Measured scan of single mutants.
Amino acid sequence: MQVTWGNVTVTFSNPEEAKKYAEKVARKLGGQVELHNGQFRIK
């Protein structure tokens, strides 16, 4: 499962870890987490 924002992509084998990481990054950037085609995207 991947977490992407800007031109950065981070890949996780565990979807739960990916979700936690995406939420943490979104909080830092003041963005929203979207699940899109099996990727968490931060907008």
Score class of each variant (00 low, 15 high):
9 T>D: 03
41 R>G: 04
40 F>S: 00
10 V>C: 15
39 Q>F: 07
28 K>G: 06
22 A>H: 00
3 V>T: 01
10 V>M: 12
14 N>V: 06
16 E>I: 13
16 E>R: 10
12 F>L: 06
29 L>D: 02
43 K>V: 15
18 A>C: 04
20 K>T: 12
4 T>W: 05
1 M>R: 09
31 G>L: 08
37 N>G: 08
41 R>M: 15
42 I>D: 01
8 V>G: 04
30 G>L: 05
35 L>R: 06
21 Y>W: 09
13 S>T: 13
24 K>C: 15
21 Y>E: 02
4 T>Q: 09
2 Q>P: 04
23 E>N: 08
28 K>F: 11
38 G>P: 01
26 A>V: 05
6 G>H: 08
14 N>H: 08
41 R>F: 15
25 V>T: 06
29 L>F: 11
1 M>K: 07
28 K>Y: 11
11 T>E: 08
36 H>P: 00
32 Q>E: 12
18 A>N: 00
22 A>Q: 00
23 E>C: 06
33 V>F: 05
29 L>H: 07
17 E>L: 13
36 H>T: 10
25 V>L: 14
42 I>H: 02
13 S>K: 14
9 T>C: 09
43 K>N: 12
24 K>W: 15
4 T>N: 07
43 K>I: 15
20 K>A: 14
20 K>S: 11
25 V>S: 02
20 K>F: 08
41 R>V: 15
2 Q>G: 07
14 N>A: 07
33 V>T: 03
38 G>I: 02
6 G>P: 02
32 Q>I: 15
19 K>Q: 10
14 N>L: 07
31 G>D: 02
29 L>P: 01
35 L>K: 06
15 P>E: 11
15 P>I: 14
2 Q>M: 11
34 E>C: 08
15 P>G: 09
19 K>P: 00
28 K>L: 14
29 L>N: 05
22 A>N: 00
19 K>E: 07
41 R>A: 08
37 N>T: 03
10 V>P: 00
12 F>K: 03
7 N>C: 14
9 T>E: 04
42 I>N: 01
13 S>F: 10
14 N>S: 13
31 G>Y: 06
23 E>L: 10
9 T>N: 05
24 K>Q: 13
12 F>V: 02
36 H>Q: 10
25 V>D: 00
12 F>I: 04
28 K>N: 08
43 K>C: 10
21 Y>Q: 03
2 Q>Y: 07
26 A>E: 01
29 L>Q: 05
35 L>S: 06
20 K>H: 11
32 Q>L: 12
43 K>Q: 12
38 G>A: 03
15 P>K: 14
29 L>C: 09
38 G>M: 04
17 E>C: 08
16 E>C: 10
18 A>F: 02
38 G>L: 04
3 V>A: 01
25 V>P: 00
37 N>P: 04
26 A>Y: 02
24 K>M: 15
36 H>S: 10
36 H>A: 09
42 I>V: 09
35 L>V: 12
3 V>W: 02
11 T>H: 13
39 Q>A: 12
35 L>Q: 07
21 Y>D: 00
41 R>Q: 14
7 N>T: 11
5 W>G: 01
37 N>D: 12
7 N>F: 08
26 A>P: 00
2 Q>C: 06
9 T>I: 11
8 V>I: 14
4 T>R: 09
14 N>E: 08
9 T>P: 01
12 F>N: 00
16 E>L: 13
18 A>M: 01
37 N>F: 05
26 A>I: 03
12 F>R: 01
23 E>M: 09
33 V>S: 02
20 K>V: 11
27 R>T: 10
42 I>K: 01
20 K>G: 07
22 A>M: 04
36 H>K: 10
